[in-house]
Amino acid sequence: MTGIRIVPVAPEHRADWDRLYAGYAAFYNVEQTPAMRETVWSWLMDPAHEVKGLVALDEAGRAVGLAHYRPYARPLRGGYGGFLDDLFVDPAMRGRRIADALIEAVAAIGRQRGWGVIRWITADDNYRGRGVYDRLATRTMWITYDKAL
């Protein structure tokens, strides 16, 4: 992972972030419009919004990975955790432990904020991602449900 830096997402990362986030949506077969990306970008640029973002920069300063995270209350524990909403690495840059670095950067932020856990979900068939996650975290027994509104 030589030469990779993890930094908070900033205005100068917009074009790379847009490319990466569109790639993330395509990976999960989610139809995502430029307007939807604009909404998320506006959240990331709003210091008061709960959703925050990091990017992984290569040696040339190009964003090659992203992570979006936010705090969440854990009433049963009487504390807070962090939710890793989105994690994506440019397919050409995979295998360099960039995802590891992004996850660890979110974990470091969580430690600073007193969070008890970083949690995320992934698709059952995301085998490559799950290989990374199995190495870095503990798979839980919880099953996720969605009720469309």
Rank of each mutant, 00 (worst) to 15 (best):
I4L: 03
R5F: 03
V7W: 06
A10E: 14
P11D: 12
H13L: 05
R19G: 07
R19F: 15
Y21G: 02
A22R: 08
A22C: 06
Y24N: 10
A25N: 06
Y28M: 08
Y28T: 09
E31L: 13
Q32D: 08
T33V: 05
P34C: 02
M36F: 08
R37E: 00
V40D: 00
W43V: 10
L44F: 02
D46I: 04
D46F: 02
H49T: 05
H49D: 12
K52T: 08
G53C: 00
G53V: 08
L54C: 00
A56Q: 01
A56N: 04
L57A: 05
D58S: 03
E59G: 07
A60G: 07
G65H: 04
P71H: 13
R74N: 11
P75V: 05
L76D: 13
R77Q: 14
G78Y: 09
G78E: 11
G79K: 10
G79S: 13
G81D: 14
G82A: 14
G82I: 15
D86C: 09
D86N: 13
F88N: 09
V89S: 03
G95L: 10
R96G: 12
A107Y: 06
Q112P: 07
G116L: 11
V117K: 11
R119F: 15
R119S: 13
W120E: 00
I121R: 14
T122G: 08
A123L: 11
R128W: 04
R130N: 05
G131L: 02
Y133W: 03
A137D: 01
R139S: 02
M141C: 10
T144F: 10
K147C: 10
A148W: 09
A148Q: 11
L149P: 14
